[in-house]
Amino acid sequence: MHKKNIVSAGKPLAAADKVLILLHGRGGSAEDILGLADHLSVKDFALLAPQATNNSWYPYSFMAPVEQNEPWLSSALSLLEDLVKELKASGKKEENIFFGGFSQGACLTLEFVTRNAARYGGVIAFTGGLIGEKINPENYKGDFAGTPVFIGTSDPDMHVPVARVYASSNILRNMNAAVVEKVYPGMGHTISREEVLEANGVLEGWNGVME
């Protein structure tokens, strides 16, 4: 099971109005994903990056049957739920809590916020989709109330089919998220400069809409 191991950066939590929770990908680390902050508009943010046990949030593909990824998936979701509860208990408002992740971390990000939809500050998913062999709409509840969401991916991507990205975006839109999805031909399994610009739009309050 995942142990609570949160690496922090940016402004001290007590002094920050806004918080960005960053989730690393499979084989990555909290320190890796925090390095992304050098390119993001987060000077006024506290940054929190949970570290997955054995550097992986769940063992198999995000499109494997959910049972195969248990109990690790539920443990990861519980870790995030506890972290958000702690932030809210400390006085942080949901509309000032932001989420971001890459690859496996992006999938976990989308799964968590969609199971617990609310008016968050924003959601950034660098190559990810909702988790499961098939999307189960019964897992998802709440109302995003206009939360800006950016989902970017490559076409093709070796891990995340574009069709799953579109299907995930539609679920979030149906729950009143302001979703912008961008598909980049031949980008590869990475984060591009264009995606960073889109992410900064979310972080700077542009409602996730950039042309």
Rank of each mutant, 00 (worst) to 15 (best):
F62N: 02
Q51T: 01
I124K: 11
G100N: 12
V66P: 10
G129H: 11
F126V: 05
I97T: 10
T53M: 00
V84S: 07
N55P: 01
C107H: 14
L87D: 04
A117L: 05
N96I: 10
G121I: 10
T53K: 12
N54R: 15
L130K: 08
I131D: 01
G128M: 04
K43M: 05
V113R: 04
K93D: 14
V123R: 03
S90Q: 09
G105V: 08
F112Y: 15
T53D: 06
K88V: 15
E70T: 12
N96W: 08
I135S: 01
E67I: 09
K88D: 11
E95V: 06
T114H: 03
M63C: 11
G121P: 10
T114N: 09
F99L: 00
L47Q: 02
E133G: 03
E67A: 15
T53W: 05
V84Y: 01
A46V: 01
E94N: 11
I135E: 08
G122W: 04
E86D: 15
C107S: 15
D82C: 14
G132T: 02
F99N: 06
A46Y: 03
G105H: 11
I131Y: 09
S75E: 14
M63R: 14
A64I: 00
F126K: 13
P65D: 07
E94F: 02
R119Q: 14
W72H: 13
A76E: 11
E95S: 13
E81N: 15
S75D: 15
